[in-house]
Simulated scan of single mutants.
Amino acid sequence: MAKTCQLVMLSLLSFSAFISVMAEHQPFMSNASLKGKKQTHLRFFWHDTLSGSNPTSITVAKPSNANTSAVFDFGFVNVFDNPITEGPELESKLLGRSQGFYTDASQNTEPFQVLFSSLNFAFTEGKYNGSTVTVLGRNPILSTVREMPLIGGSGVFRFAEGYALLHTHRFNPQTRDAIVEYNIYVWHY
């Protein structure tokens, strides 16, 4: 029994020494990630087109109990590959594409209908060419201004964090086509 206690104590001391050495060489948390970041403000327009002969957004799932009076119905899912442009006109300078999906994840439409949105913005123009940012979260679409979290990026925006402010520039309730202005504030290295 005494031998077992000694072995346990020796093992615990060895483990404590190992943890102490590891903590010295690889700290659990480091403030280095907070240093040296810069902020970039991105402003562009997202064109979500469900109508016409060449839609960029399509409904891939519809609930069986759809409410025809609602803009969107709880449970529907849309997948998109939308252009993002410098101005609100579709003919303005193309900055890239946005791929992702949105779904009505709220059973209650009061006071606002709420979508859950996953958007990957892939830039094809200028110094951000080949870089991406990802926005993911709750989108109460009828609010004047919405805020969504930016959860990451690639290329120039590697290790990105930040937020997006969304404002609907134009919406057609009959076709559900929308143009949304995005102001994204990105902190990155």
Rank of each mutant, 00 (worst) to 15 (best):
K3T: 15
C5G: 13
Q6G: 13
Q6V: 15
M9A: 13
M9F: 13
L10Q: 14
S11C: 11
S11Y: 08
S14G: 15
F15L: 14
A17K: 13
I19Y: 09
I19Q: 11
M22I: 12
Q26Y: 14
F28G: 11
S30C: 07
G36F: 06
K38T: 13
K38D: 07
T40L: 04
T40S: 15
T40G: 06
H41L: 15
R43H: 14
R43E: 15
F45K: 01
W46H: 11
W46T: 03
H47C: 02
H47R: 01
D48R: 02
T49R: 08
T49Y: 05
T49A: 04
L50S: 09
S51Q: 03
T56L: 00
V60A: 01
V60C: 00
P63S: 08
P63H: 10
N67K: 08
S69T: 15
S69Q: 09
A70C: 09
A70V: 06
F72T: 08
G75I: 02
F76I: 09
V77Q: 07
F80N: 00
F80L: 03
D81G: 02
D81P: 02
T85C: 04
T85I: 04
P88C: 02
P88G: 02
E89H: 11
L90S: 07
E91G: 15
K93P: 10
L94R: 15
L95W: 04
Q99G: 11
F101V: 01
D104E: 09
Q107Y: 06
N108Y: 11
N108D: 14
N108Q: 12
E110T: 13
P111M: 06
F112G: 04
V114F: 03
V114L: 05
L115F: 07
F116Y: 07
S117G: 04
S118F: 12
L119T: 10
F121V: 12
F121D: 04
A122F: 13
F123G: 02
F123Y: 04
E125A: 12
G126S: 06
G126E: 06
N129P: 08
G130C: 07
T132W: 13
V135Y: 03
G137V: 02
N139L: 10
T144Q: 10
P149I: 00
L150A: 00
G153W: 00
G155F: 04
F157I: 01
F157K: 01
F159P: 04
Y163V: 02
Y163F: 10
Y163N: 05
A164L: 05
L165F: 08
T168C: 06
R170H: 10
N172W: 02
Q174F: 09
T175Q: 06
T175S: 10
T175E: 05
A178C: 00
V180S: 01
E181Q: 10
I184V: 07
Y185A: 13
W187S: 15
Y189H: 14
